[in-house]
Design a protein around this nucleic acid. Sequence first.
DNA 1: CATTTTATCTTGGCTGGCCAACTAATGCGC
DNA 2: GCGCATTAGTTGGCCAGCCAAGATAAAATG
Lengths: 187, 187
Amino acid sequence: MSGAQGDAACGDALPFAARGGPVSHALSRVARLHRIAAGKLLRRLDLYPGQEFVMMRLWGAGPVRQSELIRGVGLDPSTVTKMLQRLEQTGHVRRGPDPSDRRAVLVEATERSCSLLAEVTAAWTELEEWSLAGLEPGERQELARLLGKVEANLCVESADCLLDREAAAPGHPAAPECAAEPGPVPG
Amino acid sequence: MSGAQGDAACGDALPFAARGGPVSHALSRVARLHRIAAGKLLRRLDLYPGQEFVMMRLWGAGPVRQSELIRGVGLDPSTVTKMLQRLEQTGHVRRGPDPSDRRAVLVEATERSCSLLAEVTAAWTELEEWSLAGLEPGERQELARLLGKVEANLCVESADCLLDREAAAPGHPAAPECAAEPGPVPG
DNA sequence: CATTTTATCTTGGCTGGCCAACTAATGCGC
DNA sequence: GCGCATTAGTTGGCCAGCCAAGATAAAATG
């Protein structure tokens, strides 16, 4: 500090929301709050925010190539690698080599993790309902639609985005619980 | 892996978008893409995504108490501390003790950083326009409104959110460039 | 005045997430 | 067969961001 340089109030206090763009700014804040809320819900499930997306991809699918998983969640490969290392360490995930391609890695959810499926789904539902409280069905749909357009816009440049991966695939009833064949778990 | 344990496909492949909630999921993806896009724009300005918000608070204000800054951006104090340490190291920010309260720290933008104001503002505008391409004015407004509602919803529980901090503060014309009076710096 | 409470940072530790650079295995072309 | 590009994953480095715990200084309280 030491005063010798004079302060640097460049221009004075704009309303803040008026510079740049209200939507971008609101988006950042909402996303942060949303993530924090998700974190609180996931905490008791021994999951960190972000891991849910990976697990959701694994539940409901058998062993999956890591590359496919990466494409699915749309994150950086290194991010997924580290996340999987942690998920493996916490026992939510099992990894192994792919016999048909020795550089690939197969990933699958552990049986233990299956017990979380329902809870994570519930948490998501709760969070969704929470976030959208007071919004009418039409508004929710509109919000989803607008977010979709924004995502499409941002996608064009970002290069690595999913977009239209499961847009099709209509209503599976699908048991929310771990309904799959339990498969013999050797003692 | 080794197949001996039986796979753990809990339930089968839901449409994914159908579980939890489409908005929450879309929100996460959009936020991520948005942040990446912001990062690309900020990169050349020697800023990392997130720092913009802090700098925006500093530009347009003289020396600010760190605690006030923290309240303003709504982040964790430790986050802001570290961010400021880096911003100080990169010369964007200057910090010094508050003579009137020796545990407080005063923060201000450096003159050097002032040259970024316009560029950051431009980047935000560009990003905003980019994200919202193809959306009509009505849609943009609607999106902002809906995001606002969601933020309000998430705010109630999050405890540390801003919301209505500068809702007041009417139109400062305010030069977008470093216009401020050089003013005496304490110390 | 002494004690306790509160406010203001700071540090350490951990995750998510990115990029850049690297290894290893597969494929393709010659 | 040999060599080169592509693909798959990993590692290291860095930053944002959180929480929990600690150090100081100010304020409240006895």
